[in-house]
């Protein structure tokens, strides 16, 4: 079982609100007995609307939070063991939502170098890593710019480079596109997919945009702290009605196919892209034609 990148068993996290004397007055269960298995090198998406516990889960992966109950292993190491803390943080990079609030350096290359500096990488190797990771996210020509002058998508790519420079096995992205415009969103997703394919980095993408999930290897859907659905994107999106029950949007193409099917057309379940729908419709058209000729 150590071959799993992330393994969660019955993970529970409770936020406890306390009054001024420190007596608990209310508890809020953000994670409710969550089981998760993520294979190394895979691209996994975690979906959920606001308050579904997906960000809490992300913070557990980087040991920014500790579980109240249950166990979480990251790369085979138990996160509740304090000795593993720095090793896990080094192996699991984290990219947050707001690009401005996670860039520390006042020059792009200095920010990318911040992580390697912290883990004590020698100077020459820092320069090498900074160059490599800026190249990997396509931001090498901005290396001496100030982050303040970059667009949102570019800033987010710098933040990703800052994580890549630490050479993690796994990158957790906590709604990295929530504050970006459509172009920035595309840039960031393309970068993340390339990292996954070329460098074999495990990607855990946390999001509430359905469209970002269609290319993932595996999807978990969360609602009120629990994993309510899981499977490949195709499996998930073929269950349009239960997705709606969890207040999740469905990609428009999938929705269209679903409605057509309900109206009586013989379409397969879980159509994700426009091309697939066109293909299925053409096939259907062909079979109609075939029937028509038979009738004549």
């Amino acid at each position: 079982m150590t071959s799993l990148m992330v393994k969660a068993r019955q993970l529970v996290h409770e936020y406890i609100r306390r009054d001024e004397e420190g007596n608990p007055i209310a508890t809020h269960t953000a994670l409710d007995h969550v089981d998760i298995d993520i294979k190394p090198g895979s691209f996994v998406a975690i979906l959920g609307h606001n308050g579904s516990g997906k960000s809490t889960l992300a913070k557990h992966l980087n040991v920014l939070l500790n579980p109240t109950e249950g166990t979480l292993w990251v790369d085979g190491k138990d996160t509740s063991d304090a000795d593993n803390l720095w090793k896990i943080r080094q192996n699991t990079g984290m990219v947050f939502q707001n690009p401005d609030n996670q860039i520390i350096g006042s020059i792009v290359e200095e920010d990318v170098g911040f992580g390697p500096e912290n883990i004590g990488v020698p100077t020459d190797e820092i320069w090498q890593r900074v160059e490599d990771s800026l190249k990997a996210v396509g931001m090498l020509k901005y290396r001496s710019h100030s982050p303040n002058k970059l667009s949102g998508g570019q800033k987010q790519r710098v933040a990703i480079a800052g994580v890549v420079a630490m050479q993690p096995k796994c990158i957790v992205l906590d709604e990295p596109t929530a504050m970006l415009d459509p172009n920035g969103r595309k840039e960031v997703l393309k970068t993340v997919h390339e990292l996954n394919k070329k460098k074999g980095v495990t990607i855990i993408l946390i999001t509430h945009y359905m469209e970002e999930v269609t290319d993932a290897d595996y999807v978990y859907v969360m609602d009120s702290g629990a994993v309510v659905m899981q499977g490949t994107p195709r499996e998930i999106f073929s269950r349009v009605d239960s997705l709606k029950a969890h207040r999740m949007d469905v990609p428009q193409i999938t929705l269209l196919a679903h409605e057509l099917k309900k109206a009586g057309l013989d379409l397969p379940d879980g159509i994700l892209t426009r091309e697939e729908l066109i293909e299925a419709l053409e096939k259907l058209n062909e079979s109609f034609k075939g029937r028509n000729t038979l009738c004549q």
Binding site: L64, R89, M94, N98, Q102, I104, F114, N118, M166
Partner: peptide, 11 residues
Amino acid sequence: DLAMAMEARCY
């Protein structure tokens, strides 16, 4: 946010 991001990067 920044403190969390710094901690996540092993500071």
